[in-house]
């Protein structure tokens, strides 16, 4: 690699915080627009995500999956800005609120993995794209 290219690459890595840098608001926006496309495909009447529906999803006692996790709040507590605790393993969980944890919902693989596990555990089924977008929209305002 020519010296200039190496220097430029090194400079770029420093400026962007390197390849392992945490995600940001733009990554989260991209994830939301992906879910919006899916939601529109699922339901032609879809007209955008709402934080209010996301909060309902968060607080509803679904009791559809594991008895230890009837609601999202079983692990995340009633306050999205508070530290939670995994109701099965006891592991502390960092707050889901974006204001406290700015890199929440910025890695699509992590987001999909967590929704797959948690929706199954709480609702006893997969979440729809609309539900995922509503949830992120709610947490974004917390």
């Amino acid at each position: 690699m020519p010296r200039f290219a190496m220097l430029a690459a090194a400079l770029l890595a420093v400026m962007t915080g390197g390849p392992a840098s945490a995600g940001d608001a733009a990554d989260r926006a991209a994830i939301l627009s992906g879910y919006a496309e899916q939601a529109a495909a699922d339901d032609p009447g879809f007209s955008g995500f709402t934080a209010a529906r996301g909060e309902d999803l968060f607080r509803t006692r679904w009791a559809g999956g594991d008895a230890r996790t009837p609601a999202c709040t079983a692990c995340h507590t009633e306050d999205p800005r508070a530290q939670g605790r995994n109701a099965k393993t006891g592991r502390p969980i960092e707050p889901a609120a974006v204001s406290v944890e700015p890199d929440r919902f910025t890695d699509i693989d992590e987001v999909e993995k967590q929704f797959r596990r948690d929706c199954d555990s709480v609702l006893g089924r997969a979440c729809t794209a609309r539900e995922k977008g509503d949830y992120i929209t709610f947490m974004q305002e917390q």
Partner: peptide, 11 residues
Amino acid sequence: HDVVTKSNCLS
């Protein structure tokens, strides 16, 4: 309440 399960070593 912070133990939750026997496998929670860190508590």
